[in-house]
Amino acid sequence: MTNTLIEILPGTYTIDPARSGASFAAYHTIGKKPVRGEVPVRSGTVTVADEPRRSTVSAELDVTGWRTDNPRRDKDVRGKRFLDADRHPVIGFRSTRVTGSAQGWQVVGVLSVRGGSTEVSLAITGMEPTVDGCRITATTRVDRVAAGVTTGRALIARHVDVELTVTLVS
């Protein structure tokens, strides 16, 4: 998916959780291979305005579905020391602005994690039409410490790379 120039008609679209998700790569501070995993999308809405820069995005990821290739690590990450999924079962995103340039579209907003929040910028890296809407991919780098996940600083690098794939349906 590389076409970021398709037109999406103005209107309100729902993110289809069954066809959407987030993948991530977290890095060790000592240079080992990255830890890769996935987090399911719980819900979301995209409102495309007549003037694209006035569009809005909101989405929630389901922290209880955090998965890597290591169930023991997953339980620890979902636990009180890291994401505290029992008290904070979602990671939320709410856009504050949408910008476009020759380099592509950016959706800037507030990412809420574990009761904290930080600004992130999602770079739209692909769009393609589907039978009932469109599929969009976006990437971002999250500063987990700024977002409130401060545990593990000696072992886990500060930044986590995230790729989102969402299917919008009308």
Rank of each mutant, 00 (worst) to 15 (best):
P10M: 14
A102T: 14
K33P: 07
L168K: 07
L168W: 03
R78G: 14
K33V: 11
H159Q: 10
G100K: 05
D76C: 03
K33A: 15
V39C: 03
H28K: 13
G31A: 11
A22F: 07
S58C: 09
G44I: 05
Y27A: 04
S117K: 12
P17A: 12
R81Q: 15
L111N: 08
Q103H: 03
A147G: 13
T2G: 15
G31P: 05
A146Q: 11
K75T: 14
T47K: 13
V108D: 02
T130S: 02
G109N: 02
T140W: 00
S95W: 05
V145E: 08
T45W: 02
A147L: 07
N70W: 01
P129R: 12
T45R: 07
V35T: 11
L83G: 06
D161Y: 08
V90H: 14
T165R: 14
A102V: 14
S112R: 14
V107P: 02
G37H: 08
I91A: 11
M1Q: 12
I15R: 00
T130E: 02
T140P: 02
V110M: 00
L168T: 04
T96K: 10
T96V: 15
A59M: 15
A85V: 01
S101K: 05
V63Y: 04
F93G: 01
V149Q: 07
T99W: 01
I124V: 15
T47S: 15
S55A: 07
R53H: 10
G31S: 12
V142S: 06
R144L: 09
